[in-house]
Amino acid sequence: MRPVMTFALMTLRSLLRRRTIWGISIVILIALVGIGQVPGYGVSNQGRFMLDFGLFGLEIGTLLLAIGLASNIYPRDRERKTVMPIIAVPLSRGQYLMGRFVGAALVQAAAMLAGCLGLMVILMLNEHAIPPDLFPATGLLIVEGWFLLAVVFFFSFWTSPPLNAPLTILLFIVSQMSVSGFVGLLPTAPGIMRTLRLLLPHMDVFHIKDPIAHGMDVPGLYFLLAMVYGLSYMVFMLAVALAVFRKRDLK
């Protein structure tokens, strides 16, 4: 565990020292300021819009963060050959992947929490109530971000960074479609589309901005189950990524 945690901290420090993370932070900050300017058609509607836009921003933010943080980690290590002395000596491939993943996941979680706190501040400044489900909803979005990180790592082991981003975004979009909606993309081959949809994740489980914005209670059990589902899919994606990485020759 110690080698993985040390490497994770090394990844964390490396990400924080790069400019990418600060660029993303500035975008989040601008988005929050923008949300603070949402006009209200009545006080309750303004709070609802702020929550709706805020949570939508966090959803998109978690996708962009995952791509921004992780799509270039392994390609950069491979291109600069940094990966070789690390894998040749102190770490196994599994430890390398876990260290890189945990480091990026810590940054992702911290950024999402900062976004959630920012949204809270905006709501408070505009004298709106903070729904108690905002915290578990952010937790769910963090899990979603970790799952996306695992997806980005998986893509990064067999494709280039310019392809990684569109592939991840495509997965993000189609994984939120219902089965019938997905089959509707190619109605002539419903069997294939259904099988394909079965293999894709159900990312719609992470999205609960609608009930929160409308002040509805989401049962705690749902948050728990959705988090377990997200974490399980994340573990699966990491296992697939590791299987690909273990097969790769490091030329």
């Binding site: 090394m10 490396s14 050959k81 070789m84 002395p85």
Partner: peptide, 11 residues
Amino acid sequence: YVPENPDYEDL
């Protein structure tokens, strides 16, 4: 291991 042209994280 001492690699050829080592390039560690330069930050």
